[in-house]
């Protein structure tokens, strides 16, 4: 059963509820502003985008920018669907593998004190703190040494084991009471079975959060410095190329960025509804 805290919770006042609501509305509008601005920009005809004085709202909304974008995309040398499939494969496979590998490792790190646990995990945290730019070159050397340049593997394989994913999952798994694991062990379940039968259902909110992070990162990935062959390029690269050519395409660029946002938004809404559902039926019992 859903526990309606804001109505029946023990320590709630109406004044407090109202204050919470007001703060959230005001800040929420601020957060949404650039998001809304992007959508409005994409609906503006070219003369309005460059109108002076600039107006925030659109006067004569039009889908011209989207039409132009689709024409630009149709005239590409390689069918557009190809890029979409490249991005979709990288995103889906990478996210799935990341969820599986990160959560498996996280479970061992969180619940079993095996030799090497401590230092292996602290390396993962250290990796989170090393800032990116200079590792690009060694990464490239390794990629090309393994012959992964110009393949989608160059994006999928590294995405399958992210320090962020492991760190997130581990921090949620340590909250599972040891008694739950012990009870399952006494019932004769092995570590692998406890992992997928007991542990994973209990950390669903974290798992879905990881899916969002991973999906979003990979979907917006441009392929970095690993993909040069036209046939393996990803969606964001191609849309950038198409939309950034010339000032007349500013509108199409906004249209492209709005369209790119749709899949992560859809996924986000879907997972959020799942999170609420899960927690309503099976909270972690301490």
């Amino acid at each position: 059963m859903k526990f309606k805290r804001s109505k029946t919770g023990p320590a709630r006042s109406t004044a407090g509820d109202t204050a919470v609501f007001m703060i959230l509305i005001i800040v929420g509008l601020f957060m949404l502003l650039p998001f809304v601005y992007a959508i409005i920009q994409s609906l503006k005809p070219t003369e309005e985008i460059f109108a002076y004085p600039p107006k925030f709202f659109v006067r004569n909304p039009t889908f011209d920018n989207y039409k132009t974008l689709s024409q630009l995309v149709d005239s590409l040398w390689i069918p557009f669907g190809r890029y979409f499939i490249n991005s979709a494969v990288v995103t889906v496979v990478g996210t799935g593998a990341n969820l599986l590998f990160s959560s498996m490792a996280a479970f061992a790190f969180a619940k079993y004190n095996f030799p090497g646990n401590k230092w292996m995990f602290s390396l993962v945290v250290a990796a989170l703190l090393f800032s990116g730019t200079v590792t690009a070159l060694p990464q490239y050397i390794i990629m090309s040494g393994l012959g992964l340049i110009n393949t989608l593997y160059s994006l999928i394989i590294p995405a399958a084991a992210t320090p962020l994913g492991l760190f997130l999952m581990k921090n949620f798994m340590v909250q599972i009471p040891d008694t739950v694991i012990e009870a399952a062990t006494i019932d004769g379940a092995g570590i692998l079975k406890i992992y997928y039968r007991v542990c994973m259902p209990l950390v669903k909110p974290a798992a879905l959060t990881l899916v969002i992070f991973s999906f979003q990162g990979l979907w917006n990935s441009t392929g970095g410095s690993y993909i040069y062959e036209e046939a393996w390029k990803l969606l964001p690269t191609v849309l950038n190329d198409v939309a950034s050519a010339g000032i007349a395409r500013v509108g199409s660029a906004s249209a492209a960025s709005v369209l790119m946002m749709l899949p992560p938004c859809a996924l986000f809404i879907f997972t959020q509804s799942r999170i609420v559902e899960t927690m309503a039926f099976s909270g972690i019992k301490g």
Binding site: L100, A108, F130, P158
Partner: peptide, 27 residues
Amino acid sequence: KYKECYLLVAPFYIIFSIFVIAPIAIA
């Protein structure tokens, strides 16, 4: 005794070592 733990950690750690730790060490 913890052999299954290493099994769980292995896929992550192999990829992590090659694509994250090695580049950092080289840098």
